[in-house]
């Protein structure tokens, strides 16, 4: 059974249907890339999975549990973290407090301390700047903080929305390296990216989203070799 199963999902903003019946699944340990152009519905899909939006139809099942109607704050405690688009760090709180906020659903102090150490080892820059206000970090550092904050909830699956957006090429590479490490550490990853080439290069499988529908799916390598994908998303 798949870890995360999305079936016939339909999402509307008022009269506009943003997602027109999509189905996909994520197996434990996989890195799944959801690619597509601006406005294809990638962010809407992630928001619906993590409970920030509720669908008009369809179901979301996580580890056998139907979470379609579960509020976002409960889903976090089931083991799903979501790194939102635009990072959304708490700008007026310190790096340390942001990370503490990520562990909001947990109560065991020692385990939280362990997670904090793990995050600092993975992101040494965050430890150097732990007392700095998050709003004063650079874009790349904020992205690291957003990822570290999500890891603080000790998720079994992590959803990432455009982690490379607006970052310099060096940071983009660093962020994708980190995603690989997170995956190697045993966390399942559902990645939404406009940078299709990068995303598919680290993914196991991928789905191509076009105006609210999945038009193509397959192994990441197959998608990288696909002529239509190359033309539309890889700029070749």
């Amino acid at each position: 059974m798949a870890m995360l199963e999305v079936k016939n999902l339909e999402v509307c903003y008022g009269m506009i249907q943003a997602i027109k019946g999509i189905s996909f699944e994520v197996n434990e340990g996989e890195v799944i890339a959801l690619i597509g152009a601006n406005g294809a519905g990638k962010t809407t899909t992630l928001h619906t999975v993590s409970g920030l939006l509720s669908p008009r139809a369809g179901t979301v099942t996580f580890e056998g549990k139907d979470i379609t109607k579960t509020p976002a704050h409960k889903i976090v405690s089931y083991g799903m973290a979501h790194v939102p688009e635009g990072r959304r760090v708490f700008a007026s709180l310190s790096v340390f407090h942001n990370l503490k906020m990520g562990a909001y659903t947990r109560s065991n102090k020692e385990e939280i301390e362990d997670s904090l150490k793990m995050v600092y080892t993975r992101f040494p820059r965050l430890e150097e700047r732990k007392n700095q206000l998050a709003g004063t970090l650079s874009g790349g550092e904020q992205q690291m903080l957003a990822m570290g904050r999500a890891l603080m909830s000790k998720p079994r699956i992590i959803l990432m929305d455009e982690p490379s957006m607006g970052l310099s090429p060096i940071f983009v590479n660093e962020i994708f390296d980190i995603i690989k490490q997170v995956s190697a550490g045993g966390t399942t990853v559902l990645l939404v990216e406009q940078n299709a080439k990068k995303a598919l290069s680290i993914a196991d499988r991928g789905y191509v989203l076009e105006t609210g529908k999945i038009v193509l799916e397959g192994k990441a390598q197959e998608l990288l070799d696909d002529e239509s994908v190359k033309k539309a998303y890889l700029g070749e």
Binding site: H73, V76, S77, V89, F90, A91, Y104, T105, A150, S153
Partner: peptide, 11 residues
């Protein structure tokens, strides 16, 4: 600071 992000923290 950010209601959406707060919900994603489990608040």
């Amino acid at each position: 600071e950010d209601k959406g992000a707060a919900r994603l923290m489990g608040i």
